[in-house]
Write a protein that binds this DNA or RNA. Structure first.
Lengths: 142, 142
DNA sequence: ATACGTGCAAACAATTTGCACTAAG
DNA sequence: CTTAGTGCAAATTGTTTGCACGTAT
């Protein structure tokens, strides 16, 4: 697995020490296309017989988020935060309000809008959160 | 104030009883262009010498949200939920990550995108959450 | 060697709930 | 009169923190 080295470099670049926990969490995030909660990750770690404390999971995620390595996602009407890797392909999510399934959609419709905001309001856009909700393919029709 | 009657009708339409608390909360939301947290509203009520319980504020907001009268807004990196009226003018927010000011921007760049999603994925869009963050006019340059 | 990371338990903050009481339709 | 709304205090949930110990650099 060379992703391990990749993540080591990534952490070094962010001036963070490379610990086993951080790397494993990054790998879990990489394997999952959809955002995971701290507890989801905690459970996956346990399933792989990795001993870790839930608070460490929170700390790792928060640290990575502050370094802009991990995105913190708000799923509508969900009380817990979810996280996913900021990988090259920027994308968004469709949340089905009925079955609660999440579908990732490549691409982003907001590039021009952000330029507009910068010109119009002198606002320097750093990023955005966009979640679309409704009824998925199977649930349409209610 | 005829908004009172307007809200009464609105509540009736949603099959909810018109209580003083619900109407007052709707009026507070109407007067404020920016999203308010449950506690913000609670404090405003107290300031107007209205006796209410914080849990009632939560219950009212949640009820109104479920009936699609009130939007639940997630402000990035803020642990509490914020609420605002779904009024006619759909809009979005710019959050300054430095001074934490919020700027409302009229209009919405997502109409076409939502059509695209419906065609492409058979997803029936019900709504979306969009928050843009960055540096405001005064904080740009850091 | 030193600063940073982690486990554990306790603390916290936001939100929800049970139950007895009150008010709206 | 009957059902839905509310106050209060207690419970729950998600997340954070203090401190002693462990590990990467």
């Amino acid at each position: 697995m060379k992703s391990k080295n990749y993540f080591k470099e990534m952490l070094k670049g962010a001036e963070l020490k490379s610990t086993k926990h951080r790397i494993t969490i990054l790998e879990i995030l990489k394997e999952n296309k959809l955002p995971l909660s701290a507890e989801d990750i905690y459970i996956k770690l346990k399933q792989n017989d990795i001993s870790i404390s839930l608070s460490t999971v929170y700390r790792v995620l928060e640290t990575l988020h502050k370094k802009d390595i991990v995105a913190k996602v708000n799923i509508p009407d969900d009380s817990k935060a979810a996280y996913e890797l900021y990988n090259n392909e920027h994308h968004h999510h469709l949340l089905c309000v009925k079955c609660r399934k999440i579908l990732a959609v490549e691409g982003c419709p907001l590039e021009e809008y952000e330029k507009f905001l910068e010109n119009r309001f002198g606002f320097t856009v750093k990023g955005h959160n966009l979640e679309v909700y409704g009824y998925c393919n199977s649930c349409t029709g209610y």
